[in-house]
C-alpha cells in the first residue's frame, strides 16, 4: 500500500489529523536540507512535501521564491531532489511527496522521473501547474509505479471541476484555503469551514488545507473541519532565519501538532 494511504488510514483510526510539512529541497544546501527534513519526520510531520526549486515559481509567494533561489544557488536541481528523497528514505518511512513545477519533470523525462522517483521511495507528486487536462502523459508514466498524483483545488473551483480533479487523483486533496500565492496569514476560518465542508462532502479523498497556515491557532481551527493541514512558508521562514534551525523547527511542529490534536481530541 502507498505510504500516504497507509498514513491517512492509521490517522483516521486514531481520529487524528495529518500534519503535512513543506520544505524546499536543498535549502539552504543539500546536507543541511537533509538534516532538516529528517528532523521534521522525527518531530510529528505525518507527510513530507519536498519543494523542488524552480527558477520561475509563479504560484509561490516571496518566502518560497527566496528559498528556491537559495537552493538553486547552492546547486540544487530536480535530479538532486530525487537523490535527496532517496537519502531521506533511508532513515524514515514517512510518506514523501515531491512538490514541483512541471518543466523540471518534463525536461528530466516523464518515464525516467517515474522510475527514479519509485526507486527513491517517493509516494506522491504534486505538480502545481499541471491541471488534469494536461496531466495525461505524466499520469500514464506514474501509473505502473503506484505513486499518486495529488491535486490542488482552489477556492474558486466549481463542483463540476472538482469531479474532474478528483478523477485519477490519489493520496489526498490539497484544498487551497484562500486566493493568492503561498505565504503565511490571511485566513478567514469561517469562510474556509464552509468551503471545506462543501468539498469534503464531494471528495472521496482526505481533504487537507494549505496556503496561509502557520500557527497552532490555525491548525486548531482548520483541523476541526479537515483531514489535515499543509504548512509551508512558516517552516521555510525558520530555515531562512538560520541559527538552530532544527530546534526551532521541532518547536514549531510541536505547536502545530498540539493545535491539531486539540482540534480532534483522541478518543479514549
Amino acid at each position: 500500500m502507498n505510504r500516504i494511504d497507509q498514513t491517512f488510514r492509521d490517522l483516521a483510526a486514531q481520529n487524528r489529523k495529518a500534519l503535512i510539512a513543506f520544505l524546499t529541497a536543498g535549502d539552504p544546501d543539500y546536507a543541511a536540507s537533509l538534516d532538516i527534513l529528517k528532523t521534521a519526520a522525527a518531530s510529528g510531520a505525518d507527510v513530507l512535501e519536498l519543494g523542488v526549486p524552480f527558477s520561475d515559481p509563479t504560484a509561490d509567494g516571496p518566502t518560497i521564491q527566496e528559498a528556491s533561489q537559495r537552493a538553486l544557488r547552492a546547486g540544487m536541481s530536480f535530479s538532486k531532489s530525487l537523490q535527496l528523497a532517496a537519502d531521506l528514505r533511508r532513515s524514515t518511512e514517512t510518506p514523501i511527496v515531491l512538490f514541483s513545477y512541471y518543466n523540471p519533470i518534463f525536461k528530466y523525462g516523464l518515464e525516467r522521473t517515474a522510475r527514479e522517483a519509485a526507486e527513491a521511495g517517493v509516494d506522491g507528486f504534486l505538480v502545481v501547474d499541471l491541471p488534469p487536462e494536461e496531466a495525461g502523459p505524466f499520469a500514464d508514466a506514474l501509473a505502473p509505479t503506484g505513486i499518486h498524483i495529488i491535486r490542488l483545488a482552489a477556492p474558486t473551483t466549481t463542483d463540476d471541476r472538482l469531479r474532474i480533479l478528483t478523477d485519477g487523483a490519489g493520496g489526498f486533496l490539497y484544498l487551497i484555503s484562500r486566493m493568492g500565492v503561498t505565504g503565511t496569514g490571511g485566513l478567514d476560518y469561517d469562510e474556509i469551514r464552509v468551503r471545506a465542508e462543501h468539498v469534503k462532502a464531494r471528495c472521496p479523498l482526505p481533504v487537507c488545507l494549505g496556503f496561509g497556515v502557520s500557527t497552532g491557532e490555525d491548525t486548531r481551527a482548520l483541523g476541526a473541519f479537515s483531514d489535515g493541514v499543509i504548512v509551508g512558508s512558516a517552516l521555510v521562514k525558520i530555515v531562512a532565519q538560520g541559527g538552530d534551525v532544527c530546534s526551532n523547527l521541532k518547536a514549531r511542529l510541536a505547536e502545530l501538532r498540539e493545535g491539531l490534536d486539540a482540534a480532534a481530541p483522541v478518543q479514549a
Binding site: 491541471p131 487536462e133 494536461e134 490542488l152 474558486t156 473551483t157 486566493m179
Partner: peptide, 12 residues
C-alpha cells in the same frame, strides 16, 4: 500551447 497553470487561475 495548452494551459499549464495552477488551479486558482483555471476559472479565471
Amino acid at each position: 500551447g495548452g494551459r499549464y497553470v495552477g488551479e486558482t487561475l483555471i476559472p479565471v
